[in-house]
Computed example of a mutant assay.
Amino acid sequence: MTGRDISKRIQSYLTELDSLEESTLTLSVDRGHIRPERNMRVTTFFYAAFDKWSSRSASGLVVLDFMGEILASKIVMHSAISSLFVAKALAGLQAIQLGISMGFNSLAIVGDSRTR
C-alpha cells in the first residue's frame, strides 16, 4: 500500500466522520438489561485518528467487561489539534472520563498500539 493509498483512505474516513457529525443519533435503552456492578473491573480501549492538514482528530472508545461484552462505545471529534501526540492524549482523557461517568471503581485503559 502506497502513501497515496493511505492518504485516500484517511480522507475517506474523515469524510465519513463529517457525515456522522451532521446526522442525529438516538439511543435506545433496554430496561430489561441487567446493569453491571460498578465495582467490577472493565477495560476501555481507545483509538485516535489524526488529520494534520485540517488539524482535526477523532477518538474512538469501547468499554468491555471482564467477559468481553461491550458496555459502551463512543466517538468524539476534536478540532484545532496540533499533533498525533495531542490526539492520542485527548483519546486517553476521553477514555478516563467515560469510565468515571459510568461510575466504575476500577478501569484498565488500553491505547492503540499501532500508532507511534
Rank of each mutant, 00 (worst) to 15 (best):
T2Q: 06
T2K: 06
G3P: 02
G3D: 14
R4M: 07
D5W: 10
S7C: 04
K8Q: 14
R9K: 14
I10W: 02
I10H: 12
Q11T: 12
Q11M: 08
S12N: 12
S12I: 03
S12Y: 08
Y13R: 13
Y13P: 00
T15D: 11
T15N: 14
T15C: 06
E16H: 12
E16P: 00
L17Q: 13
L17Y: 12
L17I: 15
D18S: 12
D18P: 01
D18C: 05
E21K: 12
E21N: 08
S23D: 08
T26I: 13
L27H: 08
S28C: 09
V29D: 00
D30F: 08
D30T: 04
R31A: 11
G32R: 15
H33P: 00
P36D: 08
E37V: 00
N39T: 11
N39E: 09
N39I: 04
M40R: 10
M40P: 00
M40T: 15
V42F: 04
V42L: 07
V42Q: 03
T43P: 00
F46P: 01
Y47L: 02
A48P: 01
A49H: 12
A49S: 15
A49W: 09
F50A: 02
K52S: 15
K52T: 08
K52Y: 10
K52Q: 14
W53C: 01
R56I: 11
R56V: 12
S57D: 07
A58H: 05
A58D: 09
A58F: 11
G60I: 06
L61T: 02
V62M: 13
V63G: 01
L64M: 12
M67Y: 14
E69I: 11
I70Y: 03
L71N: 02
L71M: 11
S73P: 00
S73C: 15
V76T: 14
V76R: 09
V76A: 04
M77L: 12
M77G: 02
M77N: 05
H78K: 04
H78A: 02
S79Y: 09
S79W: 08
S79A: 05
A80V: 04
A80P: 00
A80E: 15
I81T: 10
S82V: 07
S83R: 09
S83I: 07
S83Q: 08
S83H: 07
F85D: 09
V86H: 07
A87H: 05
A87P: 03
K88M: 10
K88D: 05
A89R: 13
A91R: 04
A91E: 06
A91L: 03
G92T: 02
G92S: 10
L93S: 12
Q94G: 01
A95R: 02
I96H: 05
Q97T: 09
L98S: 04
G99I: 03
I100D: 10
I100L: 14
I100P: 00
I100R: 13
S101V: 01
S101Q: 14
G103W: 06
N105C: 06
L107T: 06
L107S: 01
L107N: 01
A108V: 15
V110S: 08
V110I: 12
G111W: 07
G111V: 05
G111Q: 06
G111N: 06
G111K: 06
D112P: 01
R114E: 14
T115S: 12
R116M: 06
R116W: 07
